[in-house]
């Protein structure tokens, strides 16, 4: 069984620790993750802005990188969701279309893979902190990743889970939206931070570093002492501590 990591350009460049946590956690289960280095970015920034030729040029690196593996795992519901758009993106190219459909059927967001494929909910972690969770829109709405992260957290020893009010509201990231409509985006992320603060949680976790970068950036700007991390990081840290 060949399992390959789709790190996403953001985690590759800025949050390598997320990829490391995933890979090391999975090694505990005998999953030897591969990392095909021809991958770059899923193409979402171009796709969502309407530049589909540019998106295709980028998406090709992903289609090539994961052509021969059995499972693709990624620390982002949004970038996995982008792979789900590949069939539409290549609808006028029969060969690429077929590759796109194949890739879509084997692509998993990290917690989906852990829970649905490996059947793991208790990773044996201990994390004695008050934690809240922001479900990113693309992962939860478009991929349907809703129960998996909650199931994983419920098994972490010492973890006190506090639900985030209005959790399902978008954090306001939206890729180029945050730049083009920066005032609206700013209003959205400020509201999100208010809700995070209300929970009095020490830690905010999520499944998408883009959204977390957005929220963390605002929390930091406001000097709120909330630690922001990907759930994979939390689990890995918790396993090391246990």
């Amino acid at each position: 069984m060949k399992v390959s990591l789709f790190i996403t350009c953001l985690s590759d460049a800025i949050y390598p620790r997320v990829g490391e946590a995933m890979v090391r956690l999975l090694a505990n289960y005998g999953v030897k993750v591969e990392f095909p280095t021809v991958q770059t970015c899923c193409g979402q920034p171009a796709f969502n802005s309407g530049y589909w030729d540019e998106a295709r040029a980028t998406a090709k690196t992903i289609l090539e990188a994961f052509e021969d593996c059995d499972f693709v795992i990624s620390p982002s519901g949004s970038c996995t969701g982008m792979i789900h758009h590949y069939p539409k993106l290549f609808e006028n190219d029969a060969i690429m279309y077929e590759k796109a459909v194949k890739l879509q059927s084997k692509s998993y967001e990290f917690t989906q893979f852990l829970v649905q494929v490996l059947g793991v909910t208790d990773v044996g972690a201990t994390f004695p902190h008050k934690v809240t969770y922001h479900p990113s829109c693309h992962g939860s709405r478009l991929l349907g990743v809703k129960d998996e992260p909650l199931a994983l957290m419920s098994k972490v020893k010492g973890l006190e889970f506090v639900p985030l009010p209005f959790a399902e509201d978008c954090c306001g990231f939206g890729g180029t939206f945050a730049v083009k409509m920066s005032e609206i985006s700013g209003a959205m992320v400020s509201e999100k931070s208010d809700h995070v603060k209300e929970t009095e949680a020490e830690v905010l976790v999520g499944l998408d570093m883009a959204c977390l970068m957005n929220i963390a950036g605002n929390l930091r700007y406001r000097n709120e002492p909330v630690r922001v991390m990907h759930l994979a990081e939390l689990l890995y840290e918790g396993v090391k501590q246990a």
Partner: peptide, 9 residues
């Protein structure tokens, strides 16, 4: 726009 309410890593 981004950095008027955020800090970038």
């Amino acid at each position: 726009g981004w950095n008027s309410v955020r800090v970038t890593p």
